[in-house]
Computed example of a mutant assay.
Amino acid sequence: MRVGFFVTCLVDSMRPSIGFSAIELLESAGCEVVVPPAQTCCGQPAWNSGDRQTTRDLAIKWLKEFEAFEHVVMPSGSCASMVVSHYKQVFDSDPDLKWRASQLAQRTWELTDFLVNVLGMDKLKLRKSPELSKVTYHDSCSGLRDLGVKAQPRALIDQLEGLELVEMKDCEQCCGFGGTFAMKYGDVSSAICSEKCENIENANAQAVVLGDLGCMMNIQGRLARKGTHVKVLHVAELITGKS
């Protein structure tokens, strides 16, 4: 199976280990993983900011780079949601591009959804860091609400021997990041994130696991400022033992 891998801007710039972990998982299941070297942004920040022309330009570029692949996978619910849920709106006035976007959307996947529902967990080589025995999971908004990513990461975590998943209070509640929301409404975002971090701490887990780097950065920054020693891990890092 030939898979196009979209690294995403934040993974590329801030935490490349997520990308390498995701590729390791895909290759362990027998996928041929291709990372188009000219890839940039899917257009999500521009879309959220109302810049429709920049969004359209980036979306056209993204289509050209990825539509030849059998499947496209990315370690981010928000970027996957942009392609799956919003590209058709971006190209609403262009029937040809809208059709192409619709076709590609059917082959575009958030990482854990692809691992569980396309590849099958029996093909994956999963492992965890021996220092971890208990984790909690935060459901990122776009993955949960746009793509239905809920059971998939938990199914993968449940396969890790010797690791307990403890659900925090309000695990589906937003962390306050929301892309440009955190910049436009800093005080509100900060209050939301403080509540999320309190719930994480009360779960008494050694790590909080997520599927979106924006949420990871937001939560990790707040926990660090509070002096809380809870690791913040992408699910791909956890299930490849890169924690």
Rank of each mutant, 00 (worst) to 15 (best):
residue 182 A to H: 14
residue 202 N to Y: 00
residue 151 A to V: 10
residue 205 A to H: 00
residue 213 L to G: 02
residue 91 F to I: 12
residue 110 E to V: 09
residue 147 L to A: 07
residue 130 P to W: 11
residue 193 C to T: 15
residue 9 C to V: 12
residue 190 S to L: 09
residue 52 R to W: 10
residue 41 C to K: 03
residue 60 I to V: 15
residue 186 G to T: 13
residue 102 S to R: 14
residue 57 D to N: 12
residue 60 I to F: 07
residue 88 K to G: 10
residue 75 P to T: 10
residue 98 K to L: 08
residue 221 G to R: 02
residue 14 M to F: 15
residue 171 C to F: 03
residue 155 A to H: 02
residue 197 C to S: 04
residue 214 G to Q: 04
residue 194 S to T: 15
residue 67 E to I: 09
residue 78 S to C: 04
residue 156 L to V: 01
residue 19 G to L: 14
residue 54 T to G: 06
residue 35 V to Q: 10
residue 1 M to N: 06
residue 154 R to K: 15
residue 52 R to D: 12
residue 205 A to Q: 00
residue 148 G to V: 12
residue 92 D to V: 11
residue 119 L to Q: 07
residue 209 V to K: 00
residue 46 A to C: 08
residue 67 E to T: 13
residue 29 A to H: 09
residue 42 C to K: 02
residue 87 Y to I: 02
residue 176 G to W: 04
residue 160 L to V: 08
residue 218 N to F: 00
residue 205 A to D: 00
residue 164 E to H: 02
residue 41 C to P: 07
residue 142 S to Y: 13
residue 205 A to F: 01
residue 145 R to H: 15
residue 60 I to H: 05
residue 10 L to A: 15
residue 37 P to I: 10
residue 96 D to M: 12
residue 181 F to H: 08
residue 138 H to K: 07
residue 9 C to Q: 14
residue 42 C to W: 05
residue 230 V to D: 00
residue 200 I to Y: 01
residue 4 G to S: 14
residue 146 D to L: 12
residue 232 V to C: 10
residue 220 Q to T: 02
residue 75 P to I: 03
residue 49 S to W: 11
residue 207 A to L: 00
residue 132 L to Q: 05
residue 168 M to D: 01
residue 52 R to A: 13
residue 39 Q to C: 09
residue 51 D to T: 04
residue 105 A to I: 15
residue 34 V to W: 10
residue 113 D to P: 09
residue 220 Q to R: 12
residue 45 P to E: 11
residue 243 S to R: 00
residue 13 S to T: 13
residue 132 L to A: 12
residue 27 E to L: 01
residue 210 L to Q: 01
residue 142 S to M: 12
residue 173 Q to V: 12
residue 35 V to G: 10
residue 35 V to I: 15
